[in-house]
Structures are given as C-alpha cells and as structure tokens.
Amino acid sequence: MKAGSNLEKILTSGKFAVTGELGPPKGADVSVIERKANLLKGNVDAVNVTDNQTAIVRMSSIAVGAILQRMGIEATMQMVCRDRNRIAMQSDIFGAYALGLRNILCLSGDHQKFGNQPTAKNVFDLDSIQLIQTVKLMRDEHKVLGGDEIEGAPAMFIGAAENPFADPFEYRVIRLAKKVAAGVDFIQTQCIYDMAKFERFMQMARDRGLHEKIHILAGVTPLKSVGMARYMKEKVAGMDVPEEIIARMKSAGKEKAREEGLNICVEQIQRLRQIEGVHGIHLMAIEWEDAVHGIVERAGLLPRPQV
C-alpha cells in the first residue's frame, strides 16, 4: 500500500472502482457540500473535489475534502497547476495530508480566460506531469523539490487525468506513458461518449503495457438533454459526442430526455467494464448528484465493497 486509501484498497484488490465528483460551492456555505455529499455517500468509493474548475472561484478543494473526510466519505483532492507555485503546492499537500486526505489528482487546470477571474496572472510553475513527480518524491523519497528532507511524508495515492479525445490522438497514449513514468497510480479519463475511439485508445495503452502499471478509471457523465449533448460536442474542448447518441437523446423527446440519458450512461458503464484495463469508472454527474445512486445501482455496482 502506498497511501492506504479506500480507493487504493479497492483498486489493488482487483475490484471495479466507482468514483464520483463534487464541485465545491461558490461561497462559504457548507450545507451545499453536505447535501451533495449525502447523495454520493455509499454509492462511490471516493469523491473527487474539484479545484476551482473552469477557473471559477469556489471553496478550496482541500477544505471541502476535509469536510467530506469528517463525514466519512473519502475524498480525492484535485490540484491544478494554474494557481499555485511549487512552494504553495507542496505546502498544501502537507496540509491536505494532515487533514486526512489520501488521494490527489494532479491536473494542469483550465485556463483562467473562461472563468470569473479572466484578468488573473496564472502560475503553471509545474505542469501536471511534474506535479505527479513532485508528489511521488514527497511520498517515496521523503523529500521536497530541491532535496530537503521532510518531517512526515504525505503518503498520497496519486492520480491524474487523461483526455483520450484531445489532439493529437496518436500522442495521447505517449503522454499517458509519461504520466506513468512520472509515477502516477491511477488515471481518470475525460467523459467518454465515443466508445470506439476510447477502445482504440485502450488498445494503444495495452500495447504499451500501461494497463498493468496503473489503474484506469473511465469517465462517464449522464446527459440531461440533447442540448447538453450538442454543447459538449461543439463547445467543450476535446470532447467527442457521436451523432448516434445525439440522435437517441433527440428521439427521446423533452420529457424522457433525462431517462434516456441515464439509460445511455448505464449501457456505457456496462460496455466499459468489458474493456481490458478499465479498472473502474469515474462518474461525473454535474449538478445531478441525485442521479448517482440510480446509475450505480442499475449498473450492478452496489453495494460498494468494504475493504
């Protein structure tokens, strides 16, 4: 065991993992967190807490992570390279560990241009791959960057994201290999709608033997409407939504759109489970946390294993 987190235990024991996601509030209201967290509790093995996603100011991912831990829900803190330099990042990792956090997801971070602070100065002192190296250095060699010994190593289970649909496609697996070389333990992917393309990506990952070195969790997001499907296809960078899915959402009609979205999601999970090297799913039900229980149950993934 590297960190001994619930997520790590589930994955290393060969069980199929389910992780969820929680976006912190745009303010200091704890009740929002508690409401969303209770909808996820018992349905997922760990909950990602986003770090000012899309560069919109929200409550700190570490603070929200600590609140979840207190509620008995395991958190995965996301950390982006956009807002902190290496001094702040390493310091925050110490602090997060001290507060009970055991999983970290290392991300570059969305550019601030589209957030609510577009005039901010960004940092990007490290990139996501270098952040993985840094957390690993702290955990395994008990050092901070530069080589100083540390008092009490933060044993973190290290994650990273991968977008199999961004360009250049042939390079995505090479970049995944770089993350593996940097020391990542698990990967959560961008939400997958184009199953064929993802299967090609996984084939390339298997060809390099990456599926045996790390745990890949496939990202899924239930669609709420045909509008959302179209928006994701056209507006979200690096997102592929096949016409076939858009057509299904369209033919479902307005009243049944959500139901059809859930059906598609459950089918996707079942298909993803069949892919060699996929060790779990990362379920991102954006502002639709009450759908999580139903999806996980219908996918036959309840109750979550106790390890």
């Binding site: 570059s108 241009k113 990007f124 690096g238």
Partner: peptide
C-alpha cells in the same frame, strides 16, 4: 503553450488549436 506546459499538450488541444482561442495554434 497558453499554460507554458513542459509536457503538453493538455486536454484542451482540439484540431491543432488551443482551448483558449480557436485562432491560437496549440
């Protein structure tokens, strides 16, 4: 690179363009 990444491209690279502006090359 809009994010000055040393190990890019990030997930926002689409059809050779940067996520921050379709006029900017990735």
């Amino acid at each position: 690179c809009s994010k000055s990444l040393f190990n890019g491209p990030c997930g926002g690279s689409k059809a050779g363009k940067c996520e921050i502006d379709p006029q900017i090359d990735c």
